[in-house]
């Protein structure tokens, strides 16, 4: 990272600061592409604000810019959490435009454009990571959870002592195995959900209030 990058980072932080102010917990929805982050963000907003966050697609990298909504209140009878919620582009170590062509039938031009935007999306997600107070890490319970991207994200957040809540998504699917996911990351709370059907999201909201509320956030930063 050069001086210039550091400078850009500072500026980026300032922009985020301006958007949100300092008031609420900034909670990021993170994870690899296509695990259901936007579906979950939409559900949270629909349940608590009546709004939606963004479009969902079976083609990976549908979300290529971070999107956010401020001032969302989750009520948990008794205790509550007011947060600013960020839906982020999926984080990955590789993007092959040919996959969009061959697997999803996009044109070459569209595939290349989608891939280019997707690389920028990953960078944006990583930058947001620096200004977040807690993360809902979404994983696809039908897939091998122990991937490098998941391990990297978790390690990064642990290094900064930020609270992580793992949402084991898509448990409505036949081949889902939330137990595998639980054993892969025993050091963090795992909540099996279906963002699609809404199954068990109550439990997730409970855990969010508990983990991201003032008491749950034990930040020791700068």
């Amino acid at each position: 990272m050069g001086i210039f990058d550091i400078f850009k980072r500072r500026k980026f932080s300032n922009v985020i600061q301006k958007i949100f102010g300092k008031k609420h917990a900034k909670i990021g929805i993170y994870g690899p592409p296509n695990v259901g982050k936007t579906t979950l963000a939409n559900r949270i907003l629909r349940d608590w604000t009546g709004d939606i966050m963004g479009s969902v697609s079976e083609i990976p990298h549908e979300t290529r810019r971070a999107k956010w909504k401020t001032n969302i209140k989750i009520d948990n009878g008794g205790s509550s959490l007011v947060m600013d919620l960020v839906d982020t582009p999926g984080i990955t170590t590789k993007i092959d435009f040919k996959e969009f062509m061959n697997t999803y039938g996009l044109t070459k031009e569209d595939s290349r454009a989608r891939a280019k935007e997707a690389t920028e999306g990953v960078i944006e997600s990583i930058r947001w990571l620096e200004d977040i107070d807690g993360v809902v890490l979404v994983m696809d319970a039908t897939q091998d959870p122990f991937t490098q991207v998941n391990v990297t994200i978790i390690g990064n957040l642990e290094a900064r002592d930020l609270p992580i809540l793992i949402a084991a998504n898509k448990i409505d699917a036949e081949d889902a195995s939330p137990a595998t996911l639980k054993s892969a990351f025993p050091q963090h709370p795992v909540v099996p959900i279906s963002a699609l059907t809404g199954y068990n999201t109550e439990k997730l909201y409970n855990k969010m209030v508990k983990n991201f509320g003032k008491k749950g956030r034990r930040r020791k930063r700068r």
Binding site: T92, K94, I95, Q148, N156
Partner: peptide
Amino acid sequence: TATEQTTLIEHTMKEIDHDTFIGIEMG
């Protein structure tokens, strides 16, 4: 370290050119 890995991913994304370099695999 996890922080270095994150930075490596960020740099990798800047280097992807779609014809000769599609990114990295890491474990």
